[in-house]
Amino acid sequence: MTSILGIETSCDETGVAVVADGRRVLANEVASQIDIHKEFGGVVPEIASRQHTRVISQLTRKALGIAGIEIPDAVAVTRGPGLMGSLLVGLCFAKAIAYAWNKPLIGVHHIEGHIFAAMLCDSPPEFPFLALVVSGGHTQLVDCPAPHQYAILGATRDDAVGECFDKVARLLGLPYPGGPSIQKAAEGGDPQAFRFPRAMLDAPHLDFSYSGLKTAVLYTLRDDPGAKDRLPDLAASFQEAAVDALLAKTRQAMRETGARRLVLAGGVAANRRLRERLLADIDGDVFLPPFAYCLDNGAMIAAAADSRLRHGLTDPLTITPDAALPL
């Protein structure tokens, strides 16, 4: 058995996990700041480094204890992209323990981590595949021809889809985080009640745009005084528009690349409507990440690192974080 310690500190969450053989999660600890600060439209109380610094040691000790592993075979850590201060905490910590244990260090791209969350199951996807990465900070279609080879086929030109959920939730007076609250509000609503735009559907490229959808909801609330009383319809119609655009570009990308497998990744992968629609409308095998590994976590970083280790892709202790690391 190969056990890998995975550390993720690129943004709000401090994640530490132990994964065996790239797919079996022995421990997955996440210190999130969402729960304690839901009240104010998505505030992160102590972003950045201080919170990560405070919890990372104890979280690591806890994860190793739960996993029953004294010293793992390698130490994996998110190298970027993300907040410089936050990345530094995780990377410095990872370097220190890799050095102390004399184990290989593996730097992982945050998005590669999200894609590898789909490997944390009994029947993981084989390469090649197409990945749809959807989260608060990212909306990307990534061609994955072979392990650790990536080509970004399309990305958002403005807001990420997860961010759009959060901002629309705020416009609708729904609590943070917006994804789950819109999903809940949409239950029983008519997804065709309001006609919101699906941006760039007819464009030849594979990019997304979610800024106009947010604006359209805002205009509807401004111009249609009765709209606010039809919350389920509004939420369902918004959700449908957001999901439609993802579906359309994903189908287009699968046609163009000839991909037969689709891997969904990122926090918005937890959205039930998106999952249903992908399973129903995508021509090919659809791999959905387990709910537990959709949001930022250390297990996905360890999963990606396991494959990197098997491909001989380890890093020297001199690597530095990169806030704008390209995939």
Partner: peptide, 16 residues
């Protein structure tokens, strides 16, 4: 380049 995306979640974006 016009490759700008909202930093609401990422907090800081650097365009080199």
């Amino acid at each position: 380049k016009r490759e700008v995306h909202s930093p609401t979640f990422t907090l800081i974006n650097e365009y080199r």
